[in-house]
């Protein structure tokens, strides 16, 4: 029997597979396809203090081995979450993680403060890396001082697990991971989407209404893997890896590169049951390699 559980600095997951924010709704969208409670954790669609309508259509462009999106954090706000969604997600036997966003530090602090009253939420993922909002998001996660300030402010009001989601749209991502660690983050997750663009050559128009958007899917996997490897060597806190994971082998590669857990994102759009199949596949990998615990894979890259 393989022990698939992982302990992220006190946050215990029954297995290292978490579904990524913005690709898993609030969980119940997947009830027809999988037993959501089998997952190590689910990270819910990003929440803001106030409701957001998001960006205009078109918000999606398929690209080679991936896709661009510019959804822009459409959500009904933390108030709606607490009254309507929290009671539903509380029923799942998995770690329910809230992805927290804001236009400014006060917004982040407000949401984190309100979530503190929700006993089932053991962790938040601080999103300082969304590329699709004009204010906040990536503006925080790509400037060192802003990143430090927002993490510090949220740390002051949130005493459970704090995961910070890092942007790849920086020169040196390890600097931001170190800042997160210095400010008391319990883990870092990376990567958020890479800022990209698609053009329709016939009409000469951008294929997204916002012109630019976030690239995800297998196209970004080598970049994500490299960053996970770099960050895992730069900080002591656990690293949660994501970016283009489509199957169990991809997931294992991130663990080998130094991730303690992984997130499945865009793949769930195509195969809504892929996250649980990845759990099974990681178990199979452990058995084939005679590993009794999945934690033995983390950081096992042979150089």
């Amino acid at each position: 029997m393989v022990d698939l559980s992982v302990n992220l600095n006190g946050l215990v997951l029954k297995n290292p597979v978490i579904t990524a924010s913005g690709t898993f709704g609030y969980g119940s969208e997947f009830d027809d396809f999988i037993d959501v409670s089998r997952l190590g954790g689910i990270i819910l669609k990003g929440i803001t203090a106030e409701p957001r309508e998001g960006n205009p259509y078109p918000r999606m462009a398929e690209t080679a081995s991936g896709m661009l999106n510019s959804v822009g954090l459409q959500n009904k706000g933390i108030g709606h979450f607490i009254s309507e969604i929290y009671p539903v997600v509380s029923e799942y036997d998995t770690q329910v993680i809230l992805n927290v966003n804001g236009n400014n530090i006060d917004d982040y602090v407000k949401v984190a403060g309100l979530v503190s009253g929700l006993g089932k939420i053991n962790a938040i993922e601080l999103n300082i890396s969304c590329p699709n909002v004009k204010m906040g998001g990536m503006a925080f996660g790509t400037v060192r001082q802003s990143a430090r300030e927002v993490i510090r402010a949220v740390r002051n009001v949130w005493n459970r697990h704090l995961m910070v989601k890092l942007s790849p749209n920086v020169t040196n991502i390890t600097e931001f991971a170190v800042i997160a660690e210095e400010e008391g983050a319990d883990s870092v997750s990376l990567i958020n989407t890479l800022l990209g663009m698609a053009v329709d050559s016939e009409s000469r128009r951008p294929r997204l209404a916002t012109v630019t958007g976030g690239l995800s899917g297998p196209a970004v996997k080598p970049v994500a893997l490299r960053m996970v490897w770099q960050v895992s060597r730069a900080v002591k806190i656990p690293v949660v890896g994501l970016g283009g994971i489509m199957n169990a082998a991809d997931a294992v590669e991130f663990l080998i590169a130094g991730a303690s857990a992984i997130q499945v994102g865009t793949a769930s759009f195509i195969d809504p049951d892929i996250s649980v199949r990845i759990i099974d596949g990681i178990g199979d990998y452990c058995r084939r390699h005679s590993l009794s615990r999945v934690t033995q894979i983390t950081g096992s890259l042979e150089l």
Partner: peptide
């Protein structure tokens, strides 16, 4: 018919502007 990624309500890419919002 709108461009969509998932088809089951999670990617929020295929939105249409309605009297009830997106």
């Amino acid at each position: 018919e709108h461009l969509m990624a998932c088809g089951f309500g999670v990617c929020l890419c295929c939105v249409v502007d309605t009297t009830a919002g997106n």
